[in-house]
């Protein structure tokens, strides 16, 4: 029982990180029907940017005083989000925007190319081996403080929740309550008509890439502080999970992406714990294929089928 609870906690923590990346896939797909294969790699770059900031710029160690550490981590998250947002925006300008009116396959191939470019940039700068940071978050069990034993929630897991959950809430608010959010929803449903209503479609698409990029950056920081390591092809495994999450929830559907990510996080954790870690990728692929064959609209429904 305790073991199962523990696995659930691990699964949900993983799932929250997947969710930030999955939202990037689903936002972009929702708005221009492009599967941005470079998105997982952008997340990888985010974790490397955080790696440099943690190990070389701010030089945070486990001995750094807590308040200073909190301030530095907040700053690192902000810098990384800005950097990955800017990179994603540039990718859109260079690799996708010129192909806006080309057949659908063209930007898709461009996205695969972008994925290789980002991976090779990481390979060139950081080399083929894993890069690690020391564990800097205090290793305490939050639950033992309130007298629960047997199950642990670590400071890292609390950190994951503290960063991801407010971002998820902020995104929901932005999309549903702001003028720019309305422009995004209208563009996702019908770009031409959104333009006829006065929406600047090009700008709206650019903002979507900015937001997706920023979320991937935040996920990158969270991942390196949670797992303490990054590698050039990290984007592939994470990207696979995040993309499967988005499809599982119904691609184009924001809540669906978060739900799908939590489910995928749990699948990962249970597979790692009770099966074997080297089977996990195969299981994720099986889930992906299963959804595409049996329920291509995902759990909460794809939000495109009703386009007029």
């Amino acid at each position: 029982m305790e073991q199962i609870l523990q696995t659930i906690i691990i699964g949900l923590s993983n799932g929250l990180i997947f969710a930030l990346v999955a939202l990037g896939y689903t936002l972009v797909y929702g708005i221009i029907e492009l599967i941005n294969f470079a998105h997982g790699d952008l997340f990888m770059l985010g974790s490397f940017i955080a790696f440099v900031l943690i190990s070389s710029v701010f030089v945070i160690t486990a001995d750094t005083p807590l308040t200073l550490m909190v301030a530095q981590i907040a700053l690192i998250i902000a810098i990384t989000m800005i950097a990955t947002a800017a990179i994603n925006l540039s990718i859109e300008r260079v690799a996708y925007k010129p192909l806006r009116n080309a057949p659908k396959l063209a930007p898709l191939i461009s996205a695969i190319g972008m994925s290789f470019v980002l991976q090779n940039i990481a390979l060139l700068i950081f080399g083929p081996a894993n890069k690690s940071v020391n564990a800097i978050l205090p290793s305490v069990n939050i639950l033992s403080a309130v007298g629960i034993t047997g199950v642990t929630i670590s400071a890292e897991q609390v950190f994951v929740a503290i960063v991801t959950i407010p971002l998820l809430i902020a995104l929901t608010w932005f999309v549903n309550k702001t003028r720019q959010g309305r422009a995004m929803r209208a563009t996702a449903q019908d770009p031409d008509t959104a333009g006829l209503m006065g929406v600047n479609v090009d700008r709206t698409i650019a903002i979507t890439f900015l937001i997706g990029g920023a979320l991937a950056g935040a996920a990158g920081v969270v991942q390196i502080l949670y797992n303490n390591t990054s590698v050039w092809n990290l984007g592939f495994r994470f990207g696979l999970n995040a993309f499967t999450s988005a499809v599982l929830g119904g691609i184009g559907n924001l809540q669906g992406a978060v739900l799908g990510a939590l489910v995928l996080g749990l699948i990962n954790a249970f597979s790692d714990r009770y099966l074997a870690a080297n089977w996990t990728n195969a299981i994720v692929f099986a889930v992906l294929i299963g959804i595409l064959v049996f329920k291509p609209t995902g759990l909460l429904g794809q939000q495109l089928a009703d386009r007029a």
């Binding site: 003028r179 309305r182 422009a183 929803r185 209208a186 449903q189 019908d190 031409d192 008509t193 959104a194 209503m197 006065g198 929406v199 939000q303 009703d306 386009r307 007029a308």
Partner: peptide, 20 residues
């Protein structure tokens, strides 16, 4: 072909009309 925003409510569609 009308091209209303199918997933938005009637009122939200009118709000989109006033977007400019």
């Amino acid at each position: 072909g009308r091209r209303v925003f199918a997933r938005m409510t009637v009122h939200e569609n009118l709000e989109m009309g006033a977007f400019s």
